[in-house]
């Protein structure tokens, strides 16, 4: 089922660039779902504080008798390497509106020890205002104010080595309106310390060893361009994944629900939404809907159809025809990962 179905539609996950409606017709907005999954190398290594213990064994013959003994034992304690990754789950500019928009991020502890991270978010003056930056408790990419709260003291809880959490930046358009493009900047920094790679924080590591700043500088920054209120029509595309085990893991046979929302500031005629089925997925028959109403897959008298052989491969098209000023229409369809 759609991830959007069970929650208020006011908080919509935006995962793709806004686009003038004409460009929907010619360019493939779709990115394969797997390509959008943040690929973070999680080679975390030996945990901080682990003792590395070495003893050599010796054998020799003295006076014709075999003897054996051992060397001294030497121990070193593995230091804590401070590293972090922060990745936006999506790409392109985000259009902010009067309704709050949630922009999702994934924070990963690349440290070889348990670490918390200081979070900060800001928006340059312009079209948008930051409401809050929260931890997305259930990781569904949707803002649930009852559960998704700002981190205590601006810090995440301690994350285990390699552990990831989801964050959501909640933005709204500037009330008085502004034509200036704004930029959202989100940073995460290791609480223990950050800075130049190789910087040492003595005895600050897990297990009593030193903490050392790793290749990431223990600081990660992501910038997201925020669009102004556009004069023309806008298409926002988002997606949610549901695997057979109920998780949101993009695995084989997981079903991706794509949501395409077309917003029209002015009345137009002949509007048409077209979207190719991403590579590596197959269209789920009978899953196409327009504003919640099912559309048949065939080329018949309803507005939508699934075409297995368009110029860009298989795709769906929905003819909206004449649309009113200030309206929006939402097309959904499902695809299964192969």
């Amino acid at each position: 089922m759609s991830q959007h179905g069970g929650k208020s539609g006011r908080f919509r996950r935006v995962a793709a660039a806004p686009c003038l409606l004409t460009c929907i017709l010619s360019t493939g907005l779709s990115q394969p779902a797997l390509a959008q999954t943040p690929a973070v190398a999680t080679s975390i290594g030996t945990p901080a504080g682990t003792p590395i213990v070495n003893t050599a064994g010796l054998r020799y013959d003295a006076d014709g008798t075999a003897q054996s003994t051992s060397s001294n034992t030497v121990t070193i304690i593995v230091a804590e390497r401070l590293d972090v990754a922060l990745v936006r789950d999506g790409r392109g500019a985000v259009v902010v509106t009067a309704q709050p928009v949630a922009i999702p991020f994934t924070l990963t502890n690349l440290d070889n020890g348990a670490e918390s991270f200081v979070l900060a978010a800001s928006v340059s003056p312009g079209a948008a205002v930051l409401r809050t930056l929260v931890i997305d408790t259930d990781g569904d990419g949707l803002y649930d104010p009852a559960k998704d709260v700002a981190p205590v003291g601006g810090k995440t809880p301690l994350l285990a080595p390699g552990q990831s959490i989801k964050l959501l930046a909640i933005l709204v358009a500037t009330p008085e309106g502004s034509a200036t493009n704004a930029v959202l900047t989100v940073t995460a920094r290791s609480t223990t310390g950050s800075g130049a790679t190789g910087n040492v924080y003595p005895s600050a590591g897990d297990g009593g060893g030193d903490a050392v700043v790793g290749p990431t500088g223990a600081l990660a920054t992501v910038s997201v361009p925020l669009g102004t209120a556009l004069a023309g029509p806008v298409l926002l595309k988002s997606q949610s994944v549901r695997a057979a085990d109920g998780s949101q893991t993009a695995v084989r046979d997981a079903v991706i629900t794509y949501t395409l929302e077309a917003r029209f500031t002015d009345a137009v005629t002949g509007a048409r939404i077209a979207d190719p089925i991403p590579l590596g997925t197959v269209f789920v028959p009978g899953s196409l809907t327009l504003d919640g109403a099912p559309l048949s897959d065939g080329a018949d008298d309803d507005a939508g159809r699934f075409d297995p052989s368009t110029a860009q491969g298989a795709g769906v098209t929905v003819a909206l025809g004449r649309v009113a000023a200030g309206s929006s229409h939402t097309v959904q369809f499902k695809a299964k990962i192969q």
Partner: peptide, 30 residues
Amino acid sequence: TKVTPGDKVIFVLAYRNSGAQPLANVVLDN
């Protein structure tokens, strides 16, 4: 002072016969 995963380390075994007789068939294993 600060070895982290991925760092190169050198294991050194220094040996010495401190006795008065030669030692045969010496094997060090680590």
